[in-house]
Amino acid sequence: MEEKRTPIIECRHVTKVFYNQEGDHLVVDDLNFEVYENEFVVLFGPGQCGKTTVLNLITGLEKATEGEIIVNGEKVDGPSPKRGMVYQTTNLFMWYNVMKNVEFGPKVRGVPKEERRKKAQYYIDLVGLNGFENHFPIKLSGGMQQRVGIARAYCNEPEIICMDEPFGHLDAQTRYLMEEEVERISSKEKRTVVFVTNNAEEAIYLADRIILLHNCPTSVHKEYIVDFPRPRDYVAPEFLALREQITKDMDRTL
């Protein structure tokens, strides 16, 4: 008998309405899904469908209008260092060098300097930035800045890492490189990851499971288990077949 897994994230009948002078805007409508420990889940859907709002609800940056989000048995009611975030724009501290950016979370939590420096160096090495510790973000390429953002998120040792289209603004070649890097890092440094994208190839390359969302107001349309061997081949027949299927299914969500 297959062992029943306990979800680390539970979205239960989540609805989100934004209120403003122009009227109410329903963005998330009765959203239900679960994420399990060390699973890499991709939230996939058309642009402006509500994916970022879902991430903000999971991290506690937004509060649900109805329903609830449970993380490790506790209801999410605000931000927590247990839930890290990597943004499309890096949001690095431009006045800090790479080392100070990466060690920022542990520093805020009061981790002693020697310990946090050692931890930060580990993640700087992990993302391939050894030798750039004293560089400031303005001197780094877009891909390197995202590596800093990823190292910073991991260094804070959250239970969950949320990534909001982190490679959306990169050129195609750098994007492919960063996808390979995230796959490598995730294989070595196991964490529960919720990753947002509107790129089908990126979703299939990275995900253990893909959740296809409806257009705004968003809810779950369909799920796909991606059990291809890693690292994945973008032109393998099974990869291309799933890409075609997901693309067709997304057209039905519009």
Rank of each mutant, 00 (worst) to 15 (best):
A236W: 12
N20F: 12
E133D: 14
V35A: 00
N130K: 15
F93P: 07
I204L: 03
N32M: 03
L212A: 05
F195A: 06
Y96D: 12
E179L: 10
Q146C: 08
V28N: 02
E238V: 13
E39Q: 11
F136V: 10
F167P: 01
R152E: 01
N32T: 02
G78F: 13
P7E: 01
M144A: 10
E159N: 09
V41K: 01
N156Y: 06
V35H: 01
G45M: 04
F44A: 02
F18G: 05
Y96C: 11
F40S: 00
N130M: 12
E183Q: 14
D251T: 09
E223S: 10
M1L: 11
A153I: 07
V235D: 11
E159Y: 03
C49G: 07
F44L: 11
T197C: 14
P229Y: 07
F33V: 01
E66P: 00
T90D: 08
P217C: 00
T15A: 03
Y224W: 11
E179Y: 09
G131R: 14
N156L: 06
A172L: 12
P46Y: 06
P166T: 02
G168I: 09
S187A: 14
Y87F: 14
N101G: 08
V220L: 06
L140H: 10
F136I: 11
K248V: 06
P217I: 01
K63D: 14
T52K: 03
E10N: 02
R191A: 11
E66K: 00
G78L: 11
E180T: 15
N199A: 14
I246V: 14
N38H: 15
Y19H: 09
A200W: 01
N101T: 13
I8G: 05
G110K: 05
Y234R: 15
A203M: 11
T247M: 13
A207D: 00
C162D: 04
R83I: 02
P81L: 05
S186G: 07
Q48A: 15
F18W: 08
Q88C: 15
S187F: 14
G142D: 10
